[in-house]
């Protein structure tokens, strides 16, 4: 089981500038858990203190939004996740 995660530029400060990671899991939540194991600094950027995904974080599975109930979305071997954060600068 291997899932590719594309990490948006805004998170590079937490991933040693790594933009693509490989994770394992059968749901988006398990994949993100594996991702933050690899990049612990990413955890507070993605989750609040209760472990809920922050509202301004967006997850796409194979280019489709995983909203709502993102963490429960099932994934399978070969899927691609995009990890984004809302941006609003002009």
């Amino acid at each position: 089981m291997s899932i590719e995660v594309k990490i948006a530029s805004i998170f590079l400060q937490y991933t040693n500038a790594q933009k693509v990671a490989r994770v394992k899991g059968s749901t988006v939540g398990e994949c993100l858990d594996h991702l933050v194991e690899q990049f612990p600094d990413l955890k507070p950027a993605l989750f609040d203190k209760t472990g809920r995904l922050r509202r301004h974080i967006d997850i796409y599975v194979n280019d489709e939004s995983a909203y709502p109930e993102e963490l429960a979305k099932p994934v399978k071997n070969g899927d691609k996740l995009d990890l984004l954060m809302l941006i609003a600068g002009g």
Binding site: M85, L86, A88
Partner: peptide, 14 residues
């Protein structure tokens, strides 16, 4: 797209 989510208003790098 963003479901009403917000981010803190601060100067963003650009």
């Amino acid at each position: 797209l963003y479901h009403g989510a917000t981010v803190p208003e601060e100067k963003s790098p650009v």
